[in-house]
Computed example of a mutant assay.
Amino acid sequence: MKKVRRKMMKMDKYMSCVDFLLYSTFRISIREGAMSEDEIIDKLIESAYQDATRQGAFYALIKKEYENNLKEKANDARDEAKKELKNKIIKFNTYDEFNNWYNDLCEEIIGKFKKFNEEFRDSKKKFEECNKEFKEISENNEPLFSYGNAQKWVNMTIKNIYVVGALCEIMNIQHRFCEISKKFISKDIEKQLHIPIDNYILESIWNEENKKMWEEIEEEQKETQSDKSSLVKEIYCKNNKNKMKKYSADVVKPWSKWTKDDYTLFKKKFDENIKIPENQSPLEWENEHWINIALQKRK
């Protein structure tokens, strides 16, 4: 009995640590009675949105001089998209074909931002026509909220749910939220999950080992994309065709500007060329590679 009691006390201590970690990271608590599963999902979606909009960089591009209440309209679009995302997450069924579910959801999110993107483009154009000294080089009238932002929002929401759900399993926590998280941790689904694409992940696979993938993207995009909108801009150094350039926005289009075609092409070539170990899910692979780059950045 004493051993059981000591074990329970130890678990209680660990539980308080986990609870603190989750609250400081996501503003959620899985302590019994503290928050409903509805509130937890809301917070995880909000955290993912911050990642998807690059911690505020998205809003920094909406200059006050553009007027037209664009920031408020962006928030309105966000709120509408959030409702759709939350509804789809809660109602997700493991019998659904994940890729179809995923693609439809990203399209619906983009649809919620369509009016905002149009008003942003028109307001920006009008401002620049009246203020030539502020004119920026516009890349094909690209939307401010892109498919790249949408994929990051959806994928990070799922990842947040996956991470918190995994912690609940490790700690043997019983919470109604777990009924949602278990769907994405299930063996049938976790292998189908998409990796959230960001600079760290792109940099982690920009190397000699994976140059074939980048060459295939470069070759295939020639049929559908102009040089200005290319996903891969330039792989090798001009003075040394055998040496890959250093990873930067000059060699691969920033993920926040990706179109659906960019994402589809990248995902196709990634799946064909990157071999994720059988004992890993895509998100476990992503965790490892993301952290490796993050640690390198500290040096």
Rank of each mutant, 00 (worst) to 15 (best):
V4Q: 06
R5A: 07
R6S: 04
R6N: 06
D12N: 02
K13H: 03
M15K: 01
S16E: 09
V18E: 02
F20Q: 07
L22H: 07
S29C: 08
I30A: 01
R31H: 04
E32R: 14
M35T: 12
D38G: 05
I45E: 10
T53A: 06
T53I: 09
Q55N: 09
A57C: 04
Y59W: 03
Y66T: 00
E67I: 02
E67W: 00
L70A: 09
K71R: 14
K71I: 14
L85A: 04
K86Q: 13
N87K: 15
N87E: 15
K88I: 00
I89K: 07
Y95W: 00
Y95P: 00
Y95V: 03
D96F: 12
E97S: 12
D104Q: 13
L105S: 08
G111S: 15
E118D: 15
F120L: 10
F120A: 12
R121H: 03
S123R: 05
S123P: 08
E129D: 14
C130V: 07
K132L: 13
S138C: 14
E142C: 08
L144E: 06
Y147N: 08
Q151L: 04
N155A: 11
N155T: 10
I158N: 09
N160H: 11
Y162V: 06
V163E: 14
G165E: 04
G165A: 06
E169A: 13
E169S: 15
I170R: 09
R176K: 13
F177P: 12
F184M: 09
F184D: 05
I185Y: 05
S186N: 08
S186K: 04
D188Y: 09
D188L: 11
I189C: 08
L193K: 03
L193T: 04
L193Q: 02
L193D: 02
H194I: 06
H194A: 11
I195S: 13
I195W: 11
I195Q: 12
P196H: 07
D198Y: 04
D198Q: 04
S204N: 01
N207R: 01
E220A: 09
Q221K: 05
K233M: 01
C237D: 05
N240V: 05
K243R: 15
K243G: 07
K246I: 07
S248Y: 13
A249N: 11
D250T: 09
K260W: 14
Y263R: 02
F266Y: 11
K269M: 10
D271V: 13
I276D: 01
E278K: 09
P282R: 07
P282M: 09
E286N: 10
W290S: 03
W290L: 10
I293R: 12
K299L: 14
